[in-house]
């Protein structure tokens, strides 16, 4: 099953490499990874998605918790949560395609954020599934470049991940 694991990480040199190193060292996969500072300058928030059965995920979270840089950890997929990913896509847009792509972008609630004579650059946010669906709709042939931020997420309701 796909899991979204979110961590508060010490904002220290080497902290990120310990997290990433753990995954390669123990043969776990990271599908997406996203990290940035939080409102507290001593902490970063890191969110990653990974695939694995319950036993594997349990091992992953236990090992992550053992790292001294990991201050707090939550598996967002264990409860109701919101996940978002940001994607920038550059697509070939000429002739009749221009209108078609514009329509498709609207349907997915995306925005065209840069326009060239033969290309559009589109920004779109949502769950990873939605971004995948958009790429499929546009079609491989038209896509010139895809940049995805990786998943970030937050629990629904009152629940917060903080110190």
């Amino acid at each position: 099953m796909r899991r979204i694991i979110s961590l508060l990480l010490e904002n220290e040199p080497g902290a990120l490499s310990r997290v990433v190193g753990l995954f390669s060292q123990r043969g776990y996969n990271i599908d997406t990874l996203n990290v940035a500072a939080t409102e507290d300058p001593t902490l970063s928030r890191l969110t990653l998605t990974t695939l694995g059965d319950d036993q594997k995920i349990e091992q992953i979270t236990k090992h992550l918790n053992k790292l001294l840089d990991v201050v707090k950890l939550v598996d967002l997929t264990e409860g109701p949560h919101i996940e978002r990913e940001l994607m920038l896509v550059k697509v070939r847009a000429t002739g009749a395609q221009r209108a078609e792509i514009k329509r498709c972008t609207d349907i997915f609630r995306g925005q065209i954020i840069d326009v060239g004579p033969t290309v559009y650059t589109i920004q779109i946010t949502g769950t990873s599934d939605k971004l995948d669906a958009f790429l499929q709709s546009v079609g491989e042939a038209a896509i010139l470049e895809v940049v995805r931020s990786g998943v970030s997420g937050i629990a629904r309701g009152e629940k917060v991940l903080s110190l």
């Binding site: 040199p13 080497g14 490499s17 310990r18 190193g21 060292q25 001294l68």
Partner: peptide
Amino acid sequence: MVGISRPIVKHSFL
């Protein structure tokens, strides 16, 4: 050294 020893230490400091 911090990099080389990373998988074989409990923790490291630079």
